[in-house]
Simulated scan of single mutants.
Amino acid sequence: MLSPVTDSDGAPFWEYAARGELRVQTCGDCGEPRFPPRPCCPYCRSFVSEWRKTEGRGRIWSYVRPHPPLLPDYAALAPYNVVLVELDELPRIRLVGSLVSEAGAALDSVAESRVRIGARVQAVFDPVGGLPQWILERP
């Protein structure tokens, strides 16, 4: 099973994901969302932050289908769809994840022919590892 490499700035993202919540770090002073997580707001330079819950809906902004050579743990699963999703609520925030047919499905469970830029997606969470994944809203 693949698992994320966490640091102190990004650890809350993964803790919320393990609970089935998609949250984005937001500046506690100016309210601007930021991803990836980092200690200082790039807009107002504040070190105060909070984690805003999102609905987890968005659209595919871009995608790639990696093929070997890859890191060994990933090569064994390739090829599969990796999408960059622009969130509806936070259009400047884009999250990377696997496009799957349902939560916990194999990484290659969606045919490449079904992946389209602009396609509507919804966040789901792998029941085993809690990793955020994406499913098509209109399968």
Rank of each mutant, 00 (worst) to 15 (best):
G56L: 02
G56C: 07
G28F: 05
E86F: 00
W134E: 04
V85E: 02
N81T: 14
D7M: 04
P72G: 02
C44N: 08
L136N: 07
R19H: 03
G129A: 05
L99Y: 09
E89N: 02
G28Y: 03
F47I: 07
Q25I: 04
S46W: 11
V82F: 05
C41K: 05
R45L: 14
L70N: 08
V82H: 06
S98M: 12
Q122L: 05
R34A: 06
E86Y: 03
E89F: 00
A103Q: 10
C40P: 00
G129E: 09
C40H: 07
S98H: 15
D73M: 01
V24H: 04
A75W: 06
G97S: 08
Y16R: 10
Q133I: 01
G97Y: 01
G28S: 04
P12Q: 01
C41I: 06
T54C: 01
Y80A: 07
L84E: 10
W51C: 00
Q122C: 05
V64T: 15
F13Y: 15
R116E: 15
S8D: 14
G31L: 01
V96C: 03
S3H: 12
V48H: 09
I135M: 06
F13N: 05
N81Y: 01
D7C: 08
F13R: 01
V85L: 01
S62G: 07
R116N: 14
R52N: 06
P36T: 03
P36H: 02
I60M: 05
S8I: 08
L77V: 06
A103L: 11
P37N: 08
I135A: 05
G104V: 10
S3Q: 12
R19C: 02
P68S: 03
F125A: 12
W134A: 06
V85R: 01
S49E: 06
V110H: 10
C44H: 04
E55P: 00
L107D: 13
S49D: 14
V96E: 04
V24R: 03
D108V: 10
A119N: 14
A105Y: 12
G10P: 00
R52H: 09
R45C: 11
V83H: 03
E102W: 14
F13L: 13
C27A: 08
S101L: 14
E50Y: 10
S101C: 10
C44P: 06
P79K: 09
R23D: 00
S49C: 12
F125S: 11
R19K: 14
G129S: 14
V85H: 02
D7G: 15
L99N: 08
A17W: 05
V96I: 13
V83S: 05
T26R: 13
G129H: 10
T6M: 09
A75G: 15
H67F: 12
S101T: 14
E89G: 13
C41W: 08
